[in-house]
Amino acid sequence: MFRWDIVGQYLFSGLFISAAWTTLWIAVISQVCGVIIGLFLALMRTSRYRWLSLPARFYIWIFRGSPLLVQLLLLYFGFPEVFPGLVPYITIYSAALIAFSFNEGAYMAEIVRAGITSVDPGQMEAAKSLGMRYALAMRRIILPQAARVIVPPLGNEFNNMLKTTSLASVIGLFELTYTAQVYGSQSFSYFELLVVATFYYLILTTLWGYIQSYIEKRMDPNRLTATELKAQKSWTQRMMGFGSRGDRLAGTRR
C-alpha cells in the first residue's frame, strides 16, 4: 500500500533538504576536481613526451576500466587496511570526494583531449609563429576554442555526477539515496522515501539542464543574435525530447 501522506511528510523535510544539499556539494566539488584533473591528464596525454603521456594513459586505463563502486570500496575499506597511516585521512566524505574526483578526471581527460584535438592545428602554428610558448598558446588560443567542444559533454558529465553520488550510500554517506534507505527501513516505507529521493534528483538535474543550456548559448562561437537563439531547441526538447522547437516557431512566423 503506497502512502502518499508519508511522501508528503518527508518531501520538504529538513532531512531531505539537507540530504539534497549534501548530494549537490559532493557532486559540485567532485566535478570541479574532476575537470582540473582531466585537464592536466589531457595535456599529459597529448604531450609528445612519452614520460608524460604514458602515465596519463595508464591512469585513464585504470579508472575507466574498473567500476567506480569498486574504486570507492577499495579506497574506503581497502586502503586503510593496507596503509594504516591513512586511517585518519580516509573519512566517508574524503573517500567519496577522492573516488568521484579521480574517476571523473579520467572521463574528463578524454573529453578535454577530444576538445584539444578538435582545434585546427593551424591555430597552434599561428600562435607559435607569433612567439607564443606552448603553455601560453594552450591557455590563450587552444583551450578557449576547445571549450566549445568540451562544454556540452561536460554538462552531461555533471548530470551523471549528480546521480553517481548515490554510490556513496554504500559507505554510509547521508546523501539522498542513503537517507532514503536508512529512514525508509526504519519506518518500513522504503518505496515512499525513495520516491522522495527521486523527486530531489529530478529537481537537481532539471535545474542543471536549465543552467547548461544557458551556458551553451552564452558561449556559442558565432555569438548568435537573439532571433537566431530562438531557432535553437528548447530545453524541454533537449532534456526530455518533446516540447516546442524553435525552428518550427520560426517557420510559422514566416
Partner: peptide
C-alpha cells in the same frame, strides 16, 4: 630551448595560406 625558439620566432612574421586567425 622552447623559450629561445619562441623569442626568435617573435621577430619573424608568418602569414599563412589559410589565415589562421584566432576565431574567438
Amino acid at each position: 630551448r622552447e623559450a629561445t625558439i619562441a623569442r626568435i620566432r617573435s621577430q619573424i612574421g608568418f602569414v599563412f595560406q589559410r589565415f589562421n586567425l584566432f576565431p574567438h
